[in-house]
Design a protein around this nucleic acid. Sequence first.
DNA 1: TTACGTGCAAATAATTTGCAGTCCC
DNA 2: GGGACTGCAAATTATTTGCACGTAA
Lengths: 157, 157
Amino acid sequence: MIELRPNAPRDSAAHEMLARRGCPVSDLKDKLRHVGLRPTRQRISLGWLLFAKGDRHITAEMLYEEAMRARVPVSLATVYNTLHQFTEAGLLRQLAVDGSKSYFDTNTTEHHHFFVEGDEQLIDVPADIAVGDLPAAPEGMEIARVDVIVRLRRKGR
Amino acid sequence: MIELRPNAPRDSAAHEMLARRGCPVSDLKDKLRHVGLRPTRQRISLGWLLFAKGDRHITAEMLYEEAMRARVPVSLATVYNTLHQFTEAGLLRQLAVDGSKSYFDTNTTEHHHFFVEGDEQLIDVPADIAVGDLPAAPEGMEIARVDVIVRLRRKGR
DNA sequence: TTACGTGCAAATAATTTGCAGTCCC
DNA sequence: GGGACTGCAAATTATTTGCACGTAA
């Protein structure tokens, strides 16, 4: 594969295009390198699927399906590995919403979620919801994160 | 369904003892019958383990271990079934805290949780934490429940 | 070149299910 | 007695791991 460091001195026109400021693929590679992950073919493809469409909530299985549909050859194991690597790197946030599968959120900023029972679907809570007075964390502890999940059910049942 | 009221006229001494006002086992049987569950040996034993010691956060595996230690013969499948039946009956509340196992909470009132990372331990948030202004639920939806999990980490890392 | 990544299949973990036998009412 | 309940083992689902091979730096 061609090397694509944007500031490495190169002269191919193709490279110039790909490395151009604002080229999404190049940005993605930078993003990966920034967090210490080698920008491999599958990481870039998966990163593209994850980050090119705004905020998403996705499971490993869903991402795998999507990769298959997009003709991106990648194994399910690599999808799992990649999701966890991205999460550790701070590119994703993992959400425990029901006891079984994990959801990954491409929006890593503080925000909360609606969960639609039955649909198994996650929706960002739009407004800034302040969680009221949090009690002090117990001795020697600090708050790492606060997760709020508002469970919704279809009206009239 | 037949009711086993503690004052129902019976003449066996053993029954008298078990049915006596304030006898926890009898209370438990009533509790089960009230929610439409037949008070079987294993449901009573598990109910005893669950409800006799104040508020608890327990997984199926933990409850099974505890039953084994208490020499209560019960299968893991029955533990799972029982936990779910109790949950549907409103005697327990199921919590999704990490992506894998489920926790069951014997406190079914509105309250929130601390989760200690590493320890895999759940603690009730003591004070009443009001979740700030909840945005209106989307069209045709209503809020079933709000879960707040405050993730704690050991200080100084 | 060489350590880091990836794919595959097998392993694990948590949970559910089918069904024959058991127990409560 | 009869339907509800349980136990066991096998099935499922979600996820992880070991290891040979591929590939980015």
